[in-house]
Nucleic acid binder design. Structure first.
Lengths: 209, 209
DNA sequence: AGCAAGATACCAACCAGTTGGTATGCATTC
DNA sequence: GAATGCATACCAACTGGTTGGTATCTTGCT
């Protein structure tokens, strides 16, 4: 009789299950999308059991909401603390933000794809809570440039152009660029989207490179 | 004894199963995404059995490829036959194309969402054939404006700007606009994306509204 | 002791895909 | 032009595995 030495599986430290599940979800959703990611996948990747999953989240959709909200705070914190916010001129802050976005495109494709954009594409009709979380995320993205654009427009008004409208174009360029990059399997179009956005802003504000 | 009158289920006419499945897929994928749409869903919506499905498509992924390729030819034919192509001035053709895109945004959201963009977002890593089909679709989209942009740039060159690069921005605006519209549950941001694209082109080519 | 965190075991529904078969049409032969 | 032969189109029933979710028990902290 072989004493089946009960090897205690590498246990996730108590209290970390929730965070690990969200982390795993961030990665899996970026690679496969939300619907194609199963709860079992998530638990396996997080090193956690199903019981832990449904202890922390009442449903898979609820994990989706938590994932997107976590993504919103994560990116929000990252951009808020970045040095681009401390340039003197508001337009310089905007251009430095664009530089930062272009830098991020140096990572592998799944690493720069947007959790909110990916998920809302699938779930905008089937899960209102997920759609609402994506809306919060996108709107929070506006804030990364909105104040700078407001100041720039105050100093140099452009007829027919609002700061909100311009801030939206940053998200359009981001999300559209990601889709092109995925389809063409090449980050270049995503970078080009920011190049054109920068050229547009320079023309609008009379600030040639 | 009641003679259970054998009501023959409304049978799809012979030869139509394939087309109906693609049609059903177009609608379902736009509403729920590709992964969340099951083969049973598709068969039920098309009024066809599973046997018919796997007679025409070796796998669900193959249906995805056929769906996107069908979408590519469908949209290609629609844009190619449109009157905007017959204006004298190339830039007028480009602006008329933008008008057309804005008009299309008057439909309900699932009706103007892009099959290729939605699907590649989920499947770019998991299914190379689907990714390739999406690439064909996106590249075919470039062609709707590329010749006009080439002619416009030939007559009015802009340093650092290529026709290919500009054509890509049309897809960026389209795809990015759709994601914003889905997240904010409002087509306005998608329209605004084209407004800004038009303003950008007018600035580039010195052609004020 | 009490309570949140997490593990184990389980379930009914659903999943993509397969089976073995039938109905239909079309080309060839006589 | 009828009979033959065969491919295409389609169908109902089924399979093994997976799905999201639940019920119940154990662990460890305060």
């Amino acid at each position: 009789m072989t004493t089946t030495t009960r090897v205690p599986p590498v246990r996730v430290p108590r209290g970390e299950a929730r965070a690990r599940l969200i982390e795993a979800a961030r990665s899996l959703v970026r690679h496969k999308g939300f619907a194609a990611t199963s709860v079992d996948d998530l638990c396996a990747a997080a090193g956690v059991t199903k019981g832990a999953f449904f202890h922390h989240f009442p449903s898979k959709d609820a994990l989706g909401v938590a994932l997107i909200d976590d993504w919103t705070t994560m990116t929000g914190a990252m951009f808020a603390s970045h040095p681009y916010n401390f340039k003197d001129d508001p337009l310089d802050r905007v251009f430095a933000y664009i530089d930062l976005r272009r830098e991020l495109l140096g990572q592998p494709l799944p690493e720069f794809s947007c959790v909110a954009g990916t998920t809302v594409q699938e779930a905008y009709e089937t899960s209102p809570p997920i759609r609402a979380a994506a809306e919060r995320s996108i709107r929070s993205g506006f804030a990364h440039v909105l104040p700078h654009l407001e100041q720039a427009l105050a100093a140099h008004p452009v007829p027919g152009v609002t700061a909100e409208g311009l801030a939206q174009q940053f998200q359009v360029a981001t999300q559209g660029g990601i889709i092109l990059a995925k389809a063409l399997d090449d980050p270049a179009p995503a970078r080009a989207a920011f190049d054109h956005l920068e050229r547009y802003l320079r023309l609008l504000f009379g600030r040639p490179a």
